[in-house]
Amino acid sequence: MMQLRTKYLEPKLISQCIMGDPHAYSRLIAHYQQNLLTFLTRMCNDKNQAEDLFQETLIKVWRNFPKYDHRHKFSAWLFGIARNVAIDALRKKKVHSVINYTDEVPEYSDPHDVAGEVEAEELHNDLLDAINKLPEKQREIFLLRQHSHMSFREIAAATNQPLNTVLGHMHYAMTKLKKVLRDYDINEQ
């Protein structure tokens, strides 16, 4: 379904957006909004700010549509712009508040597995906490990778960094996050 959308519907919507059709734009963005908002929230650690940044990203993407190069993946381009918006906001803010994920209520398929629920919730919180504590560059590369599904070469292009630098950031980020999972013995299970 996703592939069909990317292959057929998305290029059509993009062409209409380039010609200036706002309705096609809202259809195109609706598909990415949840992922984009989650990415922005985790980048800036602030849900309300993420909503503002989402709005700013939408306007920036629209204004830059005439410059969009069809040879590149739209998601890579979109998340590249969102990343720039988030980085600018972080520079302005320059404050790293501790993230509060209490509003994120996990949904579980088995309501009887209370112990499992609690442990999963703890794992999620610890993982998000560890992501939040990552240096900005490492967090940015990790989140871009997870949300935009870009390859590392695409991430390097989107962030204007050499491939080896990007891989280095990912390597260090992953080393720290692996430790969280080791505490839960995930790999041994």
Binding site: Q34, N35, L37, T38, T41, R42, K47, A50, E51, D103, E104, V105, P106, E107, A120, L123, H124, L127, L128, I131, Q146, M174, L177, K178, L181, I186, N187
Partner: peptide, 21 residues
């Protein structure tokens, strides 16, 4: 093991509920 650990981190992150709006 290296590969499995990376995949486990990615899977664990994927399972974190998305921020609700």
């Amino acid at each position: 093991k290296r590969l499995l650990e990376i995949k486990s981190v990615e899977l664990a992150y994927k399972n974190v509920p998305a921020v609700k709006f």
